[in-house]
Write a protein that binds this DNA or RNA. Structure first.
Lengths: 246, 246
DNA sequence: GGCTATTTGTCCGTATGTATT
DNA sequence: CAATACATACGGACAAATAGC
């Protein structure tokens, strides 16, 4: 099966932690007991201390809890599903899966459009854009860090609106965009940058899902280009074609 | 700007390698020269030996090449775009971006349906399914490793057809499925297992995009449940809502 | 209450890998 | 290349808590 590897720059206990998250916990329900440390050590072919180090890491991140004499148990921590489709909206998509959602504005500035941004927004190369850096959280846990760009000539005031509402949809509505749809979403995966580690509260080596998206208004004009980083261990992206645009 | 962290189970040289991939190379064009070792060591706050270890790793995985006396240079490595939508098909999606595409059958077997498979295919818990393990490559580079499940009572012979055609679409056509559409696609990201490292020719620590998908026939009946792993450094997933179902 | 089996928690020592000087 | 300090991994032994009898 899946043998662990040495000398890769990734400690064994961390590989074991990842394995436990994936193969051991995948079929388990909340508050279920894990196999004993000794059995896990045997299964992965490592020392019990190495399994203990892995469990300690998973305990620290909130996935497990160990109780002396009783065993180690799986905490209730679902991966949120973030839907992607023509009607993709951050706020509403997660609403029914979490209690509270917050969107915080980190910074904003008006700059000449970077080439890829100008292309996505169908603006001339000399155009100016508003750049928004935001972090979104659900139930207090940071979910995504995003950078968004808007045509400065049309949406100069969007930063102020976002700071008040914490929502792109609401901010756009205030600026006369009643409705918009997702045109394209490109998805990549990579190791988190040190900035993302900070923003999303991840440990080094963690993975982020990176989406690059273009939203268009009802006239088909691109209004937003965004690059979002999602904590891959807390979220999955879901494309559901059963629910077409309303 | 976060400094690198210790005691996280990820060796410093690997963190530096990830950083170089992310922040240093992101703004660079192909065949551009990297900053000198000493400068990188200074920038990341680590010793030169550590930077050298990181560069050696990146060289081994093919993203950099070091030339004696000249410096270290960024190799040209584009990501293929893999479209996802109602009409998602592996073969045709990549056709215009690569010269040759091959689908190889690794193994097949008929087994009782695992719970998540039975649920996805809307089969009774006692049903049997055909499990196909396949690897797909474009221009000789492995792109994805997939495991697919089909209702054994309806598609018992699919393994033989796939072995001949190297295509799921063609195999289904032979079994009377003229048309099918993608119902759902869930996307996660994780570190590659050692099995995937083998199949996809990756180096340890590499990332895979994992998709779980359900395809349905024209009557809306689920016919295929699949889990695919894509090499995240060679591919990105693209959801394009501009081209609706034909 | 005691006894025992099971499981997690802590301590020792030792060897190897990692990172710096 | 060498010397040093720290992190990782292993092996064993025993303590502490829990559950069942």
């Amino acid at each position: 099966m899946t043998t662990l590897q040495r000398r890769t720059g990734i400690a064994l206990w961390r590989q074991v932690a990842d394995q436990i998250r994936q193969s051991v916990l995948s079929g388990m329900t909340a508050n279920e007991r894990l196999p004993a440390e000794a059995e896990l050590a045997n299964r992965f072919g490592v020392n019990r201390h190495t399994v203990r180090a892995a469990i300690a890491a998973l305990e620290k991140e909130g996935t497990l809890r160990a109780e002396q004499g009783r065993g180690t148990f799986l905490n209730d921590r679902r991966r949120l599903q973030y839907p992607i489709g023509p009607r993709t909206r951050f706020s509403s998509g997660l609403k029914d899966q979490s209690q509270t959602r917050t969107g915080k504005l980190l910074s904003s500035r008006t700059i000449p459009a970077p080439p890829r941004v100008a292309e996505a927004l169908e603006l001339p190369k000399t155009a100016e854009v508003v750049e928004l850096s935001t972090v979104s959280a659900a139930d207090g846990d940071p979910i995504s860090a995003a950078t968004s760009w808007f045509d400065a000539s049309r949406f100069a005031a969007i930063a102020e609106h976002y700071a008040e509402t914490g929502s792109i949809t609401a901010s756009l509505a205030r600026l006369g965009v009643d409705d918009y749809t997702r045109q394209t979403t490109a998805i990549e995966a990579r190791h988190a940058s040190s900035e993302d580690l900070d923003l999303l509260g991840l440990s080094p080596g963690a993975i982020v899902l990176l989406t690059r998206s273009v939203d268009v208004d009802s006239a088909g004009q691109p209004i937003q280009y965004g690059e979002s980083r999602f904590a891959a261990d807390r979220i999955e992206l879901l494309i559901d074609n059963r629910a077409p645009a309303a």
